[in-house]
Design a protein around this nucleic acid. Sequence first.
DNA 1: CGGTGCATTGAAGGCTATCAAGGTGGGTGG
DNA 2: CCACCCACCTTGATAGCCTTCAATGCACCG
Lengths: 258, 258
Amino acid sequence: MFVADAPTTSSSAFSQTSDIARRFHAGVAPRDASRCSLCALQALCNPADLNAEELEQVDSLVAEVRSVQRGASLFRANDPFHSVYVLRSGSFKTVVMHREGREQVTGFQISGEMLGLDGIVHGRHLTGATALERSTVCVIPFEPLEDACRAIKPMQQHLHKVMSREIARESNMIMLLGTMRAEQRVAAFLLNLAERYGTRGYSATEFVMRMTRSEIGSYLGITLETASRMFSKLQQDRLVHARGKQIRLLDTEALARL
Amino acid sequence: MFVADAPTTSSSAFSQTSDIARRFHAGVAPRDASRCSLCALQALCNPADLNAEELEQVDSLVAEVRSVQRGASLFRANDPFHSVYVLRSGSFKTVVMHREGREQVTGFQISGEMLGLDGIVHGRHLTGATALERSTVCVIPFEPLEDACRAIKPMQQHLHKVMSREIARESNMIMLLGTMRAEQRVAAFLLNLAERYGTRGYSATEFVMRMTRSEIGSYLGITLETASRMFSKLQQDRLVHARGKQIRLLDTEALARL
DNA sequence: CGGTGCATTGAAGGCTATCAAGGTGGGTGG
DNA sequence: CCACCCACCTTGATAGCCTTCAATGCACCG
């Protein structure tokens, strides 16, 4: 195995081990799990310029750190909306239900990313969130969060950026689905995943995809067979090395040029 | 002509004229253009439960009411982000630039809807906004708006809903692009447009689309030829009456069933 | 060791893109 | 006022990408 398994695995598995990754593996999480001020993910999910007192306030926003089993739901479509969630470790998919029971994956989330914002409009979740592996999340009740955003300006700006980032992400997705062909979609998907792993201190060229071909296909608007074929094609063209869920990017520039 | 032209046309053009539509045509806009408290669109772009003093504050957020010619840009991709915009009359398209100069339409906006939120993340606009007809917008500098959101809770909640609505809208779009075939996409597009016109007091069954087939195609991830063919097919099947940009929905339930 | 879920690969067909040729309508200038 | 022009729309023929249906392989697990 040459790839990061989860934030809880040994750091030796990483080809590039950044500061963030090291802090991940220093064992911070278990004790004081709900103290943001001690969390390695702080840089990802908190505003940068908080003073001690403000950090204290942020700490108290986290009502709970919850563990979610693989396959379990954090929330389902149509559930009442009370909280947003920050993914501390593991990964999720968000899914919308089509009529006739068909479902579409609208996103994959990894550590440091936020879940549940879609519930604000109608007070109900529009998507469902399912863990792709055993994961832990910080539960942040939304009303207190809004209160904190009125009191602390950097906090407010941060929330707005998070929401705006989600808008931008979806815009990108719309462009992908609207203009790219299957091979380009898969390439873009891999590059995006790689970049996000890189940001978190993991290797940006070797990783394990926690999602199935079917979920990838659903996300990319193609069938699982087409997704599989594209992985095979990219491998044949020596752009990636793909063995099931283990991925190594061999030529990221060529991938981007597709 | 059996269809509303723009908010400034005579109300006799509407088959159903609601209260909002009537207020549109009462001539409120020209005088005191920047007074939200007097604006017919208030219900759409302001929180419901503001007291007089708070409304006063909201009024002062609008730095300017700007008129935009057909084809002109409100902002372009990569422009620095300073303000968000509420569309007072007319319509816009938002566009992202692909490499190689190709562009994709990511949304159409009509009166009461907000533009520019995509700029918050990076301080630069990711999309460009172009007027599809002569339009007027309220320019709302974002920093003062954030300030107001910290001071006035309903205001904050409203902004969050607007942003969340945008996230939900894009989620829907992702589902459309990921799972629907051309005919379904066009049907969904028409139903969505109809609903939004309906909300604004216009007829939900008869309207003029301000965008070209090419723009519709780009938005829906299909070619303009396919879009045109689908309009023809829907007409042949007696679900709509389409003559160029003039549209009448004949069987909305059948459209939804597609 | 068979069962199950997931991944891969092949063959055929359908949907949509592409290329191409009119058709239509609104605007402009003579 | 009318003819022309240009942008936009419609429609046809063909090609190609992707889906669908099907069979097989592979890893994990009770």
